Simulated scan of single mutants.
Amino acid sequence: MIRVAINGYGNLGRGAEQAISKSEDMELVVVFTRRDPASVTTQGAPVARIDDMPAWADKVDVCLNCGGSATDLAEQGPAAAAHFTTVDSFDTHAEIPSYFASVDAAAKASGHLAIISTGWDPGLFSMLRVLGDSVLPDGTTTTFWGPGVSQGHSDAVRRIEGVLDARQYTLPVAETVDAVKAGEDVELTTRSMHRRDCYVVAAEGADLARIEKEIVEMPNYFADYDTTVTFISEQEMAAKHAGIPHGGTVIRRGRTSDGVAERITFELALDSNPEFTGSVVSAMGRAAARMAARGQTGARTVFDVTLADLSPKDPAELRAYYL
């Protein structure tokens, strides 16, 4: 059995716990938290303070770091790699090179392996982008995100004065997706590729016009998109927008000879973004434990992981039934 720790017990941590419970070759042995351990209820695993990691170093084969990229992982990634083989879902694309370097240094110093930036984007989508580029070198790759809830953008709306709650959905522009699939020469811009729908619960007496204006003009979030704002009640929010769905599509279009077009499409449709991401992180945890057992150390990405290491099946079974 692969002994797994979860570091951070939010939506992603609980999603990883759910995935581990469905894996016959993995067991959750501890959950680390910054909260009072007595306040955290898991599906059965013991809970320890994050400061207690050193005491678990010999009892864990891989630690899944389930904190957020914005504030948690920059510190927790290197810190956890000092004690364990680790996996995380760091997703701030522009900062991946510097994050990789910091985790790599910590993992090499401690003799551990650390796979960073798993999940689905970065993660599975990254793998498909490389696959498409490798198989169809004469071509272009386009990625669409959604339809789904953007948690960071939803938080940005909730920070506006007079907003009690909000959900923001990122939606691919259907006409653009169809044009890309058809191989049409279409201009790809921020506005032409995605739009944003916001559902907002406003405080009684709040200035709705002001709130809508602040949303649609918010730089870096909504100003560059066609954005729709719909005000709803708390009851409607709870009834219709309680989940965290998401998804997306990677499309690689290329030419193998003059006039011969080929297309590769990879699509995700997720009822629960954190549960699916937790499933990917868990599978990467299996791969990390196996790679570490072979003596690998330092940081890695999904590009370094084989399908054989991801799978719970043995190589003979993979050859017989999956090849």
Results as ranks from 00 to 15, higher is better:
M1I: 13
G15A: 07
Q18V: 11
A19Y: 03
S21Q: 14
K22Y: 11
S23V: 02
D25M: 07
D25A: 08
D25S: 13
V29E: 10
F32C: 11
R34H: 11
R35N: 12
P37M: 11
T41S: 09
P46C: 09
I50L: 13
M53D: 03
P54D: 09
A57F: 06
D61E: 07
D61H: 05
V62N: 00
L64R: 06
N65T: 10
G67S: 10
A70C: 05
A70I: 11
P78M: 07
A79I: 02
A80D: 08
A81Q: 02
F84N: 03
D88E: 12
D91Q: 08
P97R: 06
S98R: 13
Y99L: 06
S102T: 14
A105R: 12
A105E: 15
A109S: 15
G111R: 04
H112D: 01
T118N: 00
W120D: 02
W120P: 03
D121P: 00
P122T: 01
G123V: 09
F125W: 01
L128C: 01
R129V: 14
R129S: 01
V130L: 10
V130R: 07
T142M: 00
W145I: 02
A156N: 12
R159V: 06
R159D: 13
V163W: 08
A166P: 09
R167W: 06
V173K: 02
A174S: 14
T176A: 05
T176R: 04
V180Y: 01
G183N: 12
E184R: 15
E184N: 14
E184K: 15
V186S: 02
L188C: 03
H194I: 08
R195M: 14
D207T: 12
L208I: 12
A209V: 11
A209Y: 04
E214K: 10
E217G: 07
A223H: 12
V229S: 06
I232Q: 06
S233D: 13
Q235W: 05
E236G: 06
A239Q: 14
I244S: 02
R252E: 09
R253I: 08
E262G: 01
I264K: 00
T265I: 15
L268F: 02
P274E: 08
E275L: 08
T277D: 04
S279N: 05
V281F: 04
G285D: 06
G285A: 11
R286L: 13
A287F: 05
A293T: 09
A299K: 02
A299S: 11
S311N: 05
P312Y: 07
